[in-house]
């Protein structure tokens, strides 16, 4: 599969990658499902904000409790809450549509016949899933910051950490950005594994069910004390690390190791997808 320069069209054996990526992103965001998902995710921080204001500090402990009167914590709390189930499902849905859904529609065939090489197809699809992951995480973060500042309000315009110190607005926003990037990394791992499942089936629901089942299985495994040794292998065991961004001084160990773990999961997922797509009938 040689990629020739964009000059003489008749000699070109593949469409420019940039054009493929742009078409994929366009397709992703024209899908009504994606837009509805984005809207629903933007609602999460708003609902939490309203809940916190209504409950007025009786919201109990946990990160949600820390949001009261401390709006900049809202995006981080909302991301952490959504990371447990909703965000992975959104990414799994994107991955399900990316290969299984296209196969079911018969559109995968069209792309392969264009032709888009199978390697590029995996690359383009992985990129599309990553874009969805970033979009949903950003939706929560941005709406979270706005809802936090407007609905909840913040102490002196800053962020009160779990350690009892107060950070300025810029430092607080930097913490939010850090958590958002970290969440996208975790979602990339989920997306890559979901893409691998997606390359095995023509039924998008199988992908959703697998990711949901995997999350439940990981949750069960991590709850069994005898299987403590398994913890460091489980993607989900690092998912509480987002709270570390609310500590002062900040500790990056847990976010760092969970990001490394996520990268490994992503490599496994994309590697398997590559291997599988070279063989797949379309």
């Amino acid at each position: 599969m040689t990629i020739t320069a964009e000059t003489g069209p008749p000699t070109r054996a593949a469409a420019p990658v940039g054009r493929l990526l742009a078409a994929e992103v366009r397709w992703v965001f024209r899908r009504p499902r994606t837009l509805v998902t984005l809207g629903l995710f933007a609602l999460i921080p708003v609902l939490i904000a309203i809940g916190v204001v209504v409950a007025d500090r009786d919201g109990g402990g946990g990160l949600i409790g820390a949001v009261a009167g401390n709006g900049l914590v809202l995006p981080i709390a909302a991301l952490t809450v959504a990371l447990a189930l909703l965000l992975p499902l959104a990414v799994a849905m994107a991955a399900a549509d990316a290969l299984a859904g296209e196969a079911a529609n018969g559109t995968l065939r069209g792309l392969l016949l264009a032709p888009v090489s199978r390697l590029r197809l995996v690359g383009v699809k992985a990129f599309g899933v990553l874009v969805v992951a970033a979009a949903v995480a950003l939706a929560i973060a941005v709406v979270g910051v706005l809802a936090g500042m407007v609905v909840v309000g913040s102490a002196d315009g800053g962020m009160v950490t779990l350690s009892g110190t107060t950070l300025g607005l810029a430092a607080g926003l930097a913490r939010v950005a850090l958590v958002t990037v970290w969440v996208v990394g975790q979602l990339a791992a989920v997306g890559a594994v979901a893409l691998a499942v997606s390359s095995l089936t023509e039924h998008p629901l199988v992908v959703l069910a697998s990711v949901l089942g995997g999350l439940i299985a990981f949750g069960v495994l991590s709850a069994i004390p005898a299987l403590d040794w398994l913890q460091p292998w489980l993607l989900t065991s690092g998912w509480s690390a987002g709270a570390d961004a609310l500590r002062d001084p900040i500790t990056l160990d847990a976010m760092g190791s969970s990001t490394l773990r996520a990268l490994c999961y992503a490599a496994i997922g994309v590697g398997f997808t590559l291997w599988r797509m070279q063989r797949r009938d379309a």
Binding site: R19, L20, A23, R30, P32, N105, T107, L111, A114, P115
Partner: peptide, 21 residues
Amino acid sequence: GFHPFLSGRENLRRLAAAEPL
């Protein structure tokens, strides 16, 4: 094989984006 939520033109444009020629 086409996407139900896209118009005929959009569907073809997506295919055309992948056409090397």
